[in-house]
Nucleic acid binder design. Structure first.
Lengths: 124, 124
DNA sequence: TAACTTATTGCAACTTGTTCGCATTAACAA
DNA sequence: TTGTTAATGCGAACAAGTTGCAATAAGTTA
């Protein structure tokens, strides 16, 4: 199933690329000038995830947040990185800090979801 | 407000202590012989969290999981530790692996929520 | 042991995040 | 220009978690 370009996809991706932070569906919906349906936003975002254009983080509030993956050219953010969730301004950003871990023998890690939360530099 | 001992609290804590893993509310509810209301289970668990008896993890499925905190005597699990979620047997366990991280200046970390997911040794 | 205070429970209703079915619309290739 | 089918909007459905309230029961005090 080949992908098609639509105004919705473009608007969402533009927004994510500009803010640079990880955003929840309702944050995206609010910041968009155009009105896009809830379900559509989720579908667009999940498609981006499948295509490796954005990645999804689940914070301790149980909500999904989406952020663009940094392209390999200007790779400032490693594949496995920490995320920082500011409980004051309610934003989530990707930290350049890579996640190092080791698991006991026999365990296979397929995905990681690491979120540090607290107060960011702008709010402290 | 002083805490009271009730059969519900005891049953939930016993279960968590025995399995040693982090469990979701519905897993707890299913494994209990006694019938305890959804809301009650959440209230019991959240009270345990407040009292520092159990800790809460939010996995990438957006659900809350609760596990007993290891007491300081036999401290095998450090305060900040990784969690491993097996997507096959759907269990979450605390790993002895501590989480090491550094944040940019100006950031204050108050809580961490780190979950690795994949296949555990029993399922591989 | 009886009376009393209030933490705890069960129930039902509610909120919120996310997904799904389906008919309609619109990319884009032929 | 036409045809295929991916993408959308809408409403309903679903699930996790919370909340209000009246009823129950722990544990303290008399």
């Amino acid at each position: 199933m080949k992908r098609r370009n639509t105004p919705s996809k473009e608007a969402v991706l533009d927004l994510l690329a500009h803010t640079g932070k990880a955003m929840s569906r309702d944050a995206i919906e609010k910041q968009l000038e155009v009105d896009i349906d809830r379900a559509t936003i989720y579908r667009v975002l999940n498609r981006f995830c499948e295509d490796g254009i954005v990645h999804k983080i689940v914070a301790e509030d149980g909500k999904q947040y989406f952020a663009v993956c940094i392209t390999s050219d200007e790779k400032k953010i490693p594949d496995n990185h920490f995320h920082f969730r500011c409980t004051s301004c309610e934003t989530i950003e990707c930290l350049p800090e890579p996640v190092h871990f080791a698991v006991p023998v026999g365990y296979t890690v397929e995905r990681i979801n690491c979120v540090l939360s607290g107060i960011c530099k702008d709010c402290s």
